[in-house]
Design a protein around this nucleic acid. Sequence first.
DNA 1: TCTGGGGTCCTCCACCGT
DNA 2: TCTGACGGTGGAGGACCC
Length: 348
Amino acid sequence: VAHLDMDAFYVSVELRRRPDLVGLPVIVAGSGPRAVVTTASYEARRFGVGSAMPAARARRLCPAAIVLAPDFDEYRRASAEVMDIVRRHVVQIEQVGLDEAYLDLSGLPAPKAGMRRVVAEIHAATGLRASVGIGPNKLVAKVASDAEKPSGFVVLTREGARARFAEAPPSLIPGIGAKTAERLASVGIRSIAGLADAPPETLRSVFAAGTTQALQALARFEHDAPVSQERKVISESRERTFDEDVLSPSDLAEILERLSGQLCGDLAQKRRQGRTVGIKIRLADFSTHTRARTLVSATNAEAQVGGVAAELLRTFLAEHPGRAVRLLGVRVAGIEPEPAEAQLALEI
DNA sequence: TCTGGGGTCCTCCACCGT
DNA sequence: TCTGACGGTGGAGGACCC
């Protein structure tokens, strides 16, 4: 399995049309007071700027940085260029987000040489660079592709990965985030080898038996998930963080109605509908709350989705009167294609 | 330092019917 | 008739990812 990961993808796409900025610290981030960094160029990363960091803090760390607004339409176009090239070489690919993909190389006569050609062709055709990891499964491939960015090309066996990352922190492994790393540290586990070799009893004081097993398998780089062709979307949502917290229920209702309209418009265009309508509310203290209702049948009708969402919001606000809201969102889940009869009925 | 937007998946719990 | 086990479903929260 190969994992192909584009280097600083959004920034690199921006630099294609702004070659004057090559070599400078560049940050892609929103403009509002609560914006976060989407991507930073390697020059900006040297100042400590990284993804998901508040943009205000990034500017403080690197006042000279050039900040560009994200342009996702352009990133989607660039992503399609790259993935088209990949598909010309490999049949079985699993795209993850815009900038990475797993490739099933089994059956290829010369997988390493093949991947070198893919990377070279991507660069020649798009000007974009990528890093590649190759291993016996998706987990080894993913960690390998991260190991020598940018322009990395790392091939590892499972045992090779265990040896190479033995002393690395557990959070290097995808699926082990900050919270899990913290719990591991609380029982003295601070490395991948430490996790792999720990007596299960040690872990069971902080994790359930199933989680213990799963974490230790990850630390041994055991992973058997296949490279799956496509993942289908099961929910879609629209949400907004406000520049300033909003208190007024009528303002919130109005915003929710707008978000519902956008969401339903997009769903209808894609001829998709869903059965569960939900709202998401983040309060000023950053606590996040969700409320949802499952309907008898799927819908993408603005009046219905908006109506249910409005009702969920009214109920929540009644339970939490006078609380300032920093984010409001609406979601439709349990998505399925619109039945063909509905299209027929419309045509008739 | 003060935390986006769009997602998936998991866990826990309540409820319901068998 | 009552009770408990069990599975399915839905709701809420949270961890995690790009």
